[in-house]
């Protein structure tokens, strides 16, 4: 196995008195799509939100253990969450474009981080992001229209474009297709696959078929524990753990 890009070691996460994650050791490789699967409440989203410290927003949430991205400890005291989140992007379950124009949506991250020095550069980077998200051809002539005038699938790709505009190293996706129809889902899945060469992608999904289709590695969580992690093709054809087998074949586990 190659050197992991994201390494979680002995990660325990608590919400108040409830423990959401138990001793998670997980390696996530660079330039691969890693799918986190498991039943609701298994802790997969908690782990995802621990990676960019979105859990910090929940006052009662406590993190214990070590989580490194590219060798840097995410929970070290010197870490500025703003810098962290600028380099670890996130796409949410429900498409949530800002109530602004398509252009403004993509340009927002560039503006707050001052990543473009001129208007010309800003335009170029917005165009590049929309092209990378496979949305440019559909919106090139209506960049001034509000982001939420787009269809659900387009909105989600707009959110992806907004995320990659600031060129993060990692993209976290929290059930990005759960609100989309199958065709829009297929388009987003194709997009995720094409983004893999430039980004490390971690995706939480409820759809095992989706995890099987787009990920190279799959981690199965149950009741806050990491049950099994491995190459997707192995996990879905011949899982080593009985619980994994029962979950992915739709038995009561």
């Amino acid at each position: 196995m190659t050197k992991p890009f994201i390494a979680a070691r002995a990660v325990n996460v608590f919400y108040g008195a409830n423990q959401a994650l138990f001793d998670i050791d997980l390696d996530i490789e660079a330039n691969k799509v890693t799918a986190l699967i498991g039943p609701s409440g298994c802790g997969k989203s908690t782990l995802l939100r621990s990676i960019n410290r979105m859990n910090d927003l929940i006052a009662a949430c406590r993190f214990d253990g070590s989580l490194q991205i590219g060798g840097q400890d995410v929970y070290a005291p010197a870490v500025d969450v703003v810098a962290l989140r600028a380099q670890v992007g996130m796409v949410f379950q429900k498409p949530n474009p800002f109530p602004k124009s398509i252009y403004e949506n993509v340009a927002y991250g560039l503006k707050i981080h001052r990543l473009a020095t001129s208007k010309r550069e800003m335009q170029d980077r917005v165009e590049w992001s929309l092209k990378s998200a496979g949305l440019w051809d559909e919106v090139a002539d209506r960049l001034d229209e509000p982001g939420n005038s787009l269809s659900g699938g387009q909105q989600q790709r707009l959110c992806i474009a907004r995320t990659i505009a600031v060129q993060p190293k990692v993209i976290l996706m929290d059930e990005p297709c759960s609100a989309l129809d199958p065709i829009a889902t297929a388009v987003v899945e194709e997009l995720i696959d094409s983004l893999r060469k430039d980004y490390t992608i971690v995706i939480v999904t409820h759809s095992m078929q989706q995890a099987a289709r787009i990920s190279q590695r799959t981690a199965f969580f149950h009741m806050g524990k990491l049950i099994e992690v491995g190459h997707t093709k192995d996990v879905f054809t011949n899982p080593q753990n009985e619980q994994t087998q029962n979950y992915i074949t739709g038995r009561i586990g």
Binding site: N52, M54, L57, V82, A83, L84, R85, A86, Q87, G89, M90, F92, K94, N96, P97, F98, P99, Y108, G109, I112, H113, C159, R162, T163, V166
Partner: peptide, 20 residues
């Protein structure tokens, strides 16, 4: 979701509130 999206993009909390 607006605030979350802005924070996830790396906006500071004040930016997230005042921009969105």
């Amino acid at each position: 979701s607006f605030k979350q999206a802005a924070l996830a993009l790396g906006a500071t909390p004040v930016q997230a509130v005042f921009h969105h």
